[in-house]
């Protein structure tokens, strides 16, 4: 149960820069105009970020793509937890069957 000082310095440096990325958006947003193109851009930001995170994972292979489509359809009907549980099960079954 020891902490090496060099390791701790690395952890602190990572933490400081990570916190900087987290407050930077808050600091910038306070100075942005609240209408016009900037407003349109901020409204579009949540779906744009979500899709950018998801797309490469889902396009990684046919199994991921198929499981992604299943989740998409299920999410229209089921609550989040059920959707995720079935999505995970489908991914596992497809991998078990085809890998």
């Amino acid at each position: 149960m020891t902490i090496d000082p060099v390791n701790f310095a690395a952890i602190l440096a990572m933490g400081a820069l990570t916190y900087f990325t987290r407050i930077l958006g808050f600091l910038v947003a306070d100075r942005l105009p609240k209408s016009g193109p900037v407003r349109v851009a901020l409204d579009a930001l949540p779906p744009a970020v979500l899709v950018a995170v998801i797309a490469p994972i889902v396009m990684a292979g046919p199994i991921e793509a198929a499981a992604g489509v299943v989740v998409l359809v299920l999410a229209l009907r089921l609550p989040l937890i059920a959707t995720v549980a079935v999505g995970v099960a489908v991914a596992a079954l497809l991998r078990f069957a085809f890998l």
């Binding site: 090496d4 933490g15 820069l17 958006g25 910038v28």
Partner: peptide, 25 residues
């Protein structure tokens, strides 16, 4: 530990938080 490389990597990987923070602010 390669301090500078680790810190720079953390900054780049977490830069998406800046976009999220701007939207959430």
């Amino acid at each position: 530990a390669p301090i500078a490389a680790l810190a720079l990597m953390a900054f780049l990987v977490n830069l998406r938080h800046t976009l999220m923070g701007a939207s959430l602010s």
